[in-house]
Design a binder for these strands. Structure first.
Length: 472
RNA sequence: GGUCCCUUCGUCUAUCGGUUAGGACAUCUGGUUUUCAACCAGGAAAGAGGGGUUCGAUUCCCCUAGGGACUACCA
């Protein structure tokens, strides 16, 4: 193990949004760098200019920002280092580690098929040819040496390949542009990357890249190839499963810290601990805890973990995250009065919401406008014999309570007293009052409802209900 | 087809040769209760199969089965 200060990097290709697997890879790199006081770099792998888009780049950047994965140093665009990549390819050409291959597309396909049938890696007929150069288009291929290649992966363990199983991969395309395989090793080297933590779909690439790195005489980084995430059915992740952009999770009501916690724990463990604050996550994260087998996405658990984080968030932070959802439920800007209600109900809202969407549902009763529309099943308690009279009587009692004394405790005392005085069960008054105040929407303990609603709104809603007899 | 990797409750995992195989989510039962939740208590639930090695295998080795990754002038 190296003692150097680690430099990790996340290197997405901008061909789509930041999906959940990429987000986890980024998180691991981020956590590892933070844990060891190193740097976390971000590099956009846009060597495939045809498939790369600015929209995708922006989506990835936005996703990273929402998830709170801030990177160190400048953002690197791989395409901007093309000259440097070409230079390295030329160096390899010069020292015999690469050669020009003049095979046409058709010839290549035929040769490939042939070697595949023979169970061998493809070898270009030009790899040992000393033939004079001609003007035909050519690609530059890396010349894989004989022997074996071994890496000690921090997650996968020791892996060994026979070099003869590796293709002579293309370094420079016929149009002179560098390929990913060349660009990564050059950029990682130039950026001083010490630890490469990435999806295990790159495991074999680590072997190929190591040979190239050694051909250049550079330091080989430490590798950690983490298993890919699978869908709930164990199959490859698809959009249907949740291979969605980070923004999709935000829209489903997940908070960044909750998603981070879930992602970190998916395929990584640290004893029996399930919930981590950000500080705890940085403190605890290590490569040893990463499991070698792919894990499946479990939305139930994701929601549970998210709920835990909603509870841990401070009110202001939570309100900010929840605002879009509350505005949606409200059908417009909240305004001061409703914002005040939400704020005072925060402690009740938190444990009742696993996602911000649920929080919107839980808060709905606070966002209703007078007079409430109380219909169907919700109106049933109000239709009961004497219900409106009881409400009217209770309203009178509540009116005696000054605004400054309007607290859950005081309200509870009045309710208890009212029940005792009238010699009735709590349900007798509780149910119609709840109906009058919430119109059947989800709501917490009654005294909490009255507290959050405030004196004026409570009295108003109760008066509305007792004034009008739903039976006609 | 070839190369490499993986396999403990439904799911995520603990176990680093000797455990009543532990925890979490989900599920079930009960409690609490003025709605819906939340919460509390309890229950059910696992070593893919077959061979070895060993006094003893979930743990080490091999085979089989199943799953995955890679096999581009994509990344």
């Amino acid at each position: 193990m190296s003692q150097k200060t680690p430099v990790t990097r996340f290197a997405p290709s901008p061909t789509g949004f930041l999906h959940i697997g990429g987000a986890r890879t980024a998180l691991f790199n981020y956590l590892y760098a933070k844990r060891h006081g190193g740097a976390f770099r971000l590099r956009v792998e846009d060597t495939d200019r045809a498939r790369s888009t600015d929209v995708a780049t922006q989506a990835i950047l936005d996703g990273m920002e929402w998830l709170g994965l801030s990177y160190d140093g400048d953002l690197v665009y791989q395409s901007q280092n093309a000259d440097r990549h070409v230079e390295v390819a030329q160096t390899m050409l010069g020292n015999g580690h690469a050669y020009k291959c003049y095979l046409t597309t058709e010839e290549l396909a035929a040769a490939r098929e042939k070697s595949r049938d023979a169970g061998q890696a493809f070898r270009s007929p030009f790899r040992d040819s000393k033939a004079a150069q001609n003007s035909e288009p050519y690609v530059i291929r890396f010349k894989v040496p004989t022997g074996q290649t071994k890496i000690s992966d921090q997650v996968q363990g020791d892996i060994k390949w026979e070099n003869e199983d590796f293709d002579d991969l293309v370094l420079l395309r016929a149009d002179g542009t560098p390929t990913y395989m060349l660009a990564v090793i050059v950029d990682d080297h130039d950026m001083g990357v010490t630890h490469i933590i990435r999806g295990d779909d790159h495991l074999i690439n680590a072997g190929r890249q190591k040979i190239m790195i050694e051909a250049m005489g550079w330091d080989v980084p430490d590798y950690a190839h983490v298993p890919l995430i699978h869908g709930p059915d164990g199959k490859k992740l698809s959009k249907r499963h949740g291979a969605l952009g980070a923004d999709a999770y935000r829209d489903m009501g997940y908070v960044a810290s909750g998603l981070r916690n879930y992602l970190m724990k998916l395929g990584w463990s640290h004893g029996d601990q399930e919930i981590f604050t950000d500080a705890e996550a940085v403190e605890a994260f290590n490569l040893e805890g990463i499991v070698k087998s792919p894990a499946r996405l479990d939305f139930d658990k994701m929601a549970y973990v998210n709920g835990q984080h909603i509870q841990m968030m401070d009110d202001a932070e939570l309100l900010k995250a929840a605002l879009p959802f509350l505005t949606e439920v409200n059908g417009g800007e909240l305004g001061d009065a409703k914002t005040a209600r939400i704020t005072s109900a925060m402690d009740e809202l938190k444990p009742r919401s696993k996602t911000l969407i649920e929080m919107g549902e839980q808060a709905q009763y606070l966002l209703l406008n007078r007079p409430l529309e109380i219909t169907g099943k919700a109106a049933k308690p109000l239709r009961r014999e004497g219900a409106t009279d009881l409400i009217a009587a209770l309203t009178l009692k509540l009116k005696a309570l000054e605004d400054t004394d309007w607290s859950a405790d005081a309200i509870q005392m009045i309710l208890d007293q009212f029940v005792a005085d009238n010699d009735i069960g709590f349900g007798k008054i509780g149910q119609p009052v709840r109906a009058a105040l919430t119109a059947g929407h989800k709501s917490p303990d009654l005294s909490q409802v009255l507290t959050a609603l405030g004196r004026e709104e409570t009295l108003g809603r109760l008066t509305d209900a007792s004034a009008h007899n739903p039976e006609g």
